[in-house]
Simulated scan of single mutants.
Amino acid sequence: MIVVTTPTGQIGSQVLGTLLESGEPVRVIARDPARLPDHVRERVEVVKGSHSDPDVVDEAFMNADAVFWLVAADPRAESLEAAFVDFTRPACDAFKKQGVARVVGVSALGRGVAKNAGHVSASLAMDDLIAGSGVNYRALTMPTFMDNLLWQAHSIANDGVFFAPISGDRKAPLCATRDIAAAAAGLLRDPSWHGVADVPVLGPEDLSQNDLAEIMSEVLGRPVRYQRVSLDAVRAAQLERGWSEAMAQGMADMMAAKEAGLDNVEPRTPEATTPTTFRQWCEEVLKPSREW
């Protein structure tokens, strides 16, 4: 039995789909099971609730061989520790209590170099907590997701511009969530690995924001430009959306760390290089997402 958290989320839904295609028995934890498509809901066991709830994870992890763990951090959390580490504590207790063999988690690049890196530092602290539970653990460590640009699809479509607080010519890796999900599903189905390790997912190439603008322009058939914004503007935008002070500052601190080269410290290896190119992602995900 494999347990999937965030089964309706961007990554979790793709992990779930891959596991079901392979015929694996799956149990999901869902706050709102009605959000699961009918054809999915009829093929999985469903435990209703939050995976921060001790009773929920105790029930969900019973007789489970492996767990896909993802924290969709509450933007209103009072602190980064509360959003990532405290959220995960009940699960770590349940891993031990229920004898879960393997956990695959979604985290971030930066181990050994992330200093005051906001959400990244909190993700790494979460990894340490899980590893300390004694469970066999693989942390998928990623740079920025290509799919995050979907949040700016309206601006790209209407104004031909997208924004970030990163130098336009800074090249860095970025990856597609489909490749993260594929890596996670492969590990969840493989009972042969043991111990604790990071698994980088770096995409196929390093690109700058200006490179992204050029590729989007070519694929969408319309001019798209990149505009850099300040870290203060990033923080203010999150506060306007209702984020807490701590979570908004954590986002700004993470972006500052990325500007300083956080995502460039992991050596690119064949194992860490995943297949989906940014051009392919634009053609298959961004372009079909709306009328351009």
Score class of each variant (00 low, 15 high):
276 T>Q: 09
38 D>K: 11
109 L>A: 03
266 E>Q: 14
132 G>V: 03
96 K>V: 08
144 T>D: 14
252 A>N: 06
37 P>C: 11
198 D>E: 15
236 A>E: 15
181 A>R: 07
215 I>S: 10
134 G>E: 00
67 V>P: 02
235 R>P: 06
195 G>I: 00
39 H>Y: 08
284 E>C: 06
9 G>N: 09
79 S>A: 09
151 W>L: 13
80 L>D: 05
85 V>R: 14
180 I>E: 12
32 D>L: 06
189 R>D: 07
136 N>V: 01
110 G>V: 03
159 D>H: 14
2 I>K: 10
235 R>D: 06
146 M>H: 14
224 V>K: 10
286 L>Y: 01
102 R>Y: 03
199 V>T: 08
241 R>C: 05
205 E>Y: 00
53 D>N: 15
29 I>W: 00
199 V>S: 14
219 V>W: 01
287 K>N: 06
280 Q>L: 12
137 Y>N: 13
158 N>G: 10
291 E>L: 11
222 R>W: 02
109 L>I: 02
214 E>I: 12
104 V>G: 09
38 D>W: 02
1 M>C: 10
189 R>W: 07
249 Q>G: 11
44 V>S: 12
183 A>Y: 03
197 A>G: 10
282 C>S: 12
17 G>A: 11
179 D>S: 08
1 M>F: 07
169 D>V: 09
281 W>N: 07
157 A>S: 13
60 A>W: 03
2 I>H: 06
207 L>P: 05
28 V>W: 04
250 G>Y: 00
229 V>T: 11
83 A>Q: 11
172 A>D: 03
144 T>E: 12
279 R>I: 02
96 K>Q: 12
216 M>T: 08
289 S>I: 02
170 R>K: 13
220 L>K: 06
270 P>W: 07
57 V>H: 07
210 N>K: 11
250 G>V: 01
45 E>I: 02
97 K>E: 00
268 R>M: 13
273 T>W: 11
129 L>Q: 05
166 I>D: 02
244 S>Q: 04
165 P>M: 11
27 R>D: 04
102 R>K: 15
162 F>K: 10
162 F>Y: 15
267 P>E: 11
177 T>E: 08
169 D>I: 07
280 Q>M: 14
235 R>A: 06
56 V>Y: 02
222 R>E: 07
176 A>R: 01
98 Q>C: 14
38 D>L: 07
12 G>L: 06
199 V>M: 15
64 A>G: 08
288 P>D: 05
216 M>W: 03
47 V>G: 05
106 V>A: 14
82 A>W: 00
23 G>E: 12
150 L>E: 05
146 M>R: 09
244 S>C: 06
180 I>H: 05
64 A>N: 03
133 S>L: 03
211 D>F: 07
255 M>I: 09
100 V>E: 00
106 V>P: 00
8 T>F: 13
168 G>R: 10
288 P>E: 03
95 F>Y: 14
287 K>Y: 02
90 P>V: 06
163 F>K: 15
